[in-house]
Amino acid sequence: MSKLLWIPVAVVLLALPLYLDASWLKAGQYMMIGAVGAIGLTLLSGQAGQLSLAHGFFLLVGATSYSVLSGTDDDLVGLGLNPLLALIGAVAISALAGVAFAPVAGRVRGIYLGVASLALVFLGLYLGQAAGSLTGGTSTGRAPATFELFGFSFSNEGTLIVAGVPLRGTERLWYLFLILLALSYWLAKGAVGTRIGRSWRAVRDNEAAATAMGVDVRRTKAGVFAVSSAYAGLAGVMIVLWFDILKPDENEFGTYGINTSIAFLAMAIIGGLGSIPGAVAGAVVVYGLPQLLTLYSTDLGWFTGSVTPVLVSSFVYGAAIVLVVLFEPGGLAAIGRRIKELRS
């Protein structure tokens, strides 16, 4: 995207909380969570060619780490750190968890790696339930510490009025998420265009050639897993702030389950594997659709009994993956490039 085009995009995104009500802002925040996670996965699976279905697990690692590091509950383990430090710590712990998976990632490839990584989701399911002193357990969960930045609280505390609109917790969280997404995007862009990004693509396209050019394939794979997990961990922190609760899943389908791992993969594929703007667009489709359908559910009147917005949007993005694979393997990113070429 050209640099000038960013200005109106930024202005709109910054002004939205002044016009939209909280439920719409919540929907937008959810898409931003998806975007941060999807950027991480598109680096791993798209740029470096390592299929992973473990994203849900790393989300849980980040979510739990933040809750534990910042937690002040008496009956649970909590270090009571400053929330910003807790956020940074949670991202770092998630990255380490990614590195810990490297011995497996270095040995298996392709679909086998995908299946091996899926095992982590089940590990997370077990740990989430077993380590109740960290996660709060499945029945009650645990409330995360409210995010604070240099004394400014991202909650309804105090009054802050901009242009006649009171900025409460939801509006404040919107700006926090916007900053985190912008930072994630900018960092990923920088990495992809330079030395580290080239080594990822070399490992993806030909390991023998990568080796001959001096790329340590094992180390590169471990590194890209760390980066991707760090992104997932950040998305995990965002998700506990969004729900305002950390609640481990009761079965393999849930906030940190298989369905989440697949949803992130869907974002990366629909957006075009390896494309960072594509990952954001994919997140808007995959995480935006259920949110919008829920907001409109009463107006639409489609949803009765077992037909839920989540179910309908699963079908829609499932179909979108099939269409992408069949007609445009480059995903939304390739469609975007083509529109750009037509205009110039």
């Binding site: 920088g190 030395r195 080239r198 693509r201 050019m213 590194g223």
Partner: peptide, 23 residues
């Protein structure tokens, strides 16, 4: 981009250095 891969051993910088544009 392909030719620059050959500079891998002559350059330095991992994710942090590259993403922060230090390189």
């Amino acid at each position: 981009d392909n030719v620059l891969l050959g500079r891998h051993t002559l350059t330095r910088g991992g994710f942090i250095a590259c993403s922060l544009r230090w390189t």
